[in-house]
Design a binder for these strands. Structure first.
Lengths: 250, 250
DNA sequence: CGTGATATTGAATTGCATCAAGCTAAGTGG
DNA sequence: CCACTTAGCTTGATGCAATTCAATATCACG
């Protein structure tokens, strides 16, 4: 469609040009209440819908690059996004996954401190800072919600810091499976038993500070010990939740 | 003074009972502009001063415990605080240091997700959530500043996640020295050359996901290679900043 | 059905932890 | 003010969990 030399963000399609369609989209958005926009009353929906632009990204497309001017705040409405920090020599650390209802942004307008890439096909709302500011100056609850969510994010990052600094490979993988299952629960009925991991072994390894080989070995040993079973297309079934929790180590 | 069986937080002395004294303390607070209260106009100082309580903690005193109801938000005005997460089996990870001008709080009122301990003697302002809410509903800039600061904190946590997951022991220590020096710059004139680390090797190790032995060995090798020299009472002098930056690995 | 991407498994290596000893410096009480 | 004490730090020897290197297996997709 576009040449490869185009800036990546241009290859995402912006959807829904019609005002009415935009508002409708917000009012029946599945993430209406869980995401930060949930702090807004229904009366604010039109202003909300006109304050944001929506975009889709295909699996593996880059949403923003580390270092570019960080003007936008992104709210994930479907799919999974990974936030990556990497060093010149090629080492990469995924500093977070964002699932529907969660947002990400750079701390300053200056530049993004991570690269954001779509792990699956992704739908996303984008807000510029002036747009957000206009919204929260009219509805202060919005800002309060954003603050609360960023504090919650801080806490989950702290948990991840403990994992990275102090847990063994086995504990890391077990913790990851349980945490991810919890976070994306209600995807299907028996959500705590059968989960569908959208990410590859490389992505899991980069999130846990391990190598793919180690992740793979741990998966194998968890299967051998009857804690999980892995199905097709990266699905994982929890066979012994109690044992898995014990293996997660806290 | 009190028996050992008293709740730890009671052993901190609450200072400044007089209203006038409280306001004066805020108006000449060294952290007035750097900390989140800096978002308030001078006209708000009296309300600010009456909205918070001040406390001192001695070196090594516990400020809050992981698991207690998380009602307060703390703003450090002098000294250094460490935030620790630990597992039942005794492993500990310091998830952050807080220096003057920085705050910490639990994400929900429910409970703190970390234990906060004074690394040095500490002075601190405490706010309850209703107090804060009253402040930011009158001065929305306060909330905006809190949000901005928590986003900045998120970013520094992400950097720490890269460090924990992907850096070598040597890179970890070098990065820590440089980052800490930057953060506490202007402590003295040539702040980028001579820094005074208030934390022990144990605390550095628990922050970097290492053991004390490894931290010690890395310090020794950095000294041998002429990058730093260590003086009395945990002071560190940077001898070759460029080499140290290279050793920090990005 | 073939082909490149992704995952598993094995063997060898290594960076850091663990275990163990000695050292240094900051208090502390006689 | 000095010996004693102890918390904090350094250094060495050894072990092991995770990485690295290498080969093969399996999956997803045109």
């Amino acid at each position: 469609m576009f040449g490869d030399e185009m800036p990546v963000s241009m290859t995402a399609q912006t959807v829904g040009a019609q005002k009415g369609a935009q508002v409708a989209e917000c009012s029946r958005c599945a993430m209406r209440l869980t995401s930060f926009c949930g702090a807004l009353p229904n009366g604010a929906l039109e202003t909300l819908a006109l304050s944001r632009s929506r975009a889709r990204f295909n699996k593996r497309q880059t949403i923003v690059c580390e270092g570019e001017p960080g003007t936008l705040l992104f709210n994930v409405t479907s799919g999974v996004v990974k936030l990556i920090r990497s060093s010149p020599d090629g080492r990469a650390q995924i500093v977070g996954f964002r699932v529907p209802g969660e947002f990400f942004a750079s701390p300053t307008e200056e530049k993004y401190t991570f690269t954001a890439v779509a792990v699956t096909d992704v739908e996303i709302c984008r807000f510029t800072r002036p747009q957000l500011k206009r919204l929260w100056s009219e509805w202060p609850d919005l800002l309060e919600r954003l603050f609360a969510m960023s504090c919650a994010q801080l806490t989950s990052n702290e948990e991840q810091m403990f994992l990275l600094g102090r847990k063994t490979a086995r504990e890391k993988v077990a913790s990851f499976l349980l945490t991810y299952a919890n976070r994306t629960a209600c995807d299907n009925q028996d959500s705590m038993r059968l989960i569908n991991l959208p990410m590859t072994r490389v992505e899991i390894a980069d999130f846990l500070g391990l190598t793919i080989e180690t992740v793979s070995r741990v998966f194998s040993s968890l299967v051998d010990e009857g804690m999980i079973s892995v199905g097709i297309s990266r699905s994982v079934r929890f066979m012994d939740l109690q044992a898995l929790s014990r293996a997660a180590g806290d």
